[in-house]
């Protein structure tokens, strides 16, 4: 799978700047001039403190928000807000919004993943039903097809949303903090599910998280985004050795806290060395 000859890139961003547009005054840049690549069958984790622009970066890559500069392509096709149906066939997103719709079955919800592919009625053909069934299988929820989605546990709901993304059948899946609302077992199972899915379905998976240790367990590549727009990427172990985490998570406002942060990361480094 990870034979270098077979690695194939799904997403490429060149000279990408993300942030917010304002009318009549300067744009707010959260990160400038990023050059990013995502590979097939690989899980990439995006870590960074709150306010560093993780969500903004993910939303920009996913085509929900326009880039301030630069371009994003998936399989060579430019991602734009203009042709969102085409974008929806290339990238599926799992956002942080929880399921708050009542009386909607897991099957109906997951079958919405077929919307970018089917007609205006949203009617499922045989192939669509097969894909929806397989997606439920892949997240271990095949027995829950006719359950109401809002009555499931938080972890199960997250798996439903991931199944919806799988049913969308895109080369790239982006998840914004998929473990945010979950308890520890839920976090562990979602993280490992993402890794398994990348292996089994050969898709690129990109997610943001605050669960540092769990993230390091499952990812192939790491993106670090610091407040102020500094961006580091590379092999997780190398970045760890180089002290990249201390740098990214340093807190200038709180020098006393900084010592604790440094200790935490040196502890992690020692653990990794052993």
């Amino acid at each position: 799978m990870n034979d270098p000859a077979e690695i194939q890139e799904t997403l490429r961003a060149v000279g990408l700047s993300v942030g917010y547009r304002h009318v009549g005054r300067k744009h707010t840049f959260l990160a400038k001039n990023l050059n990013l690549v995502l590979n097939r069958g690989q899980v990439t984790g995006l870590l960074g403190p709150n306010g560093s622009g993780k969500s903004t970066l993910l939303r920009t890559l996913g085509g929900l928000q326009p880039a301030l500069q630069g371009s994003v392509t998936v399989l060579g096709v430019p991602v734009s807000g203009r042709n969102i149906r085409q974008t929806a066939r290339l990238i599926s997103l799992v956002l942080t919004e929880k399921i708050d719709v009542k009386n909607l079955t897991v099957f109906s919800l997951v079958s919405m993943g077929r919307y970018p592919h089917n007609s205006w009625t949203g009617r499922l053909d045989k192939k669509d039903r097969l894909i929806v069934g397989k997606s439920l299988d892949q997240v271990h929820l095949s027995g829950f097809a006719s359950a109401f989605a809002n009555e499931l546990s938080d972890g199960e709901q997250q798996r439903v949303l991931i199944a919806r993304a799988l049913a969308q059948d895109t080369p790239l899946i982006i998840l914004d903090e998929p473990t945010a609302h979950l308890d520890l077992p839920g976090r562990i199972s979602i993280m490992h599910l993402l890794k398994t899915l990348a292996d089994e379905t050969c898709r690129s998976i990109l997610f943001s998280s605050h669960d540092l240790e769990l993230t390091l367990e499952v990812i192939h590549a790491l993106w670090l985004l610091k407040k102020g727009g500094e961006f580091l990427t590379g092999d997780p172990a190398t970045l760890m050795k180089a002290g990249a985490f201390e740098q990214v998570f340093s807190s200038e406002e709180d020098p006393a806290g900084q010592e604790a942060i440094d200790n935490y990361f040196s502890g992690l480094r020692n653990k990794a060395a052993r």
Partner: peptide, 17 residues
């Protein structure tokens, strides 16, 4: 179809095209 998608939230609906 769009109405069903909106049940998941407007942003999520946009990601469905």
């Amino acid at each position: 179809k769009p109405l069903n998608a909106i049940l998941l939230g407007e942003n999520q609906a946009r990601t469905l095209g």
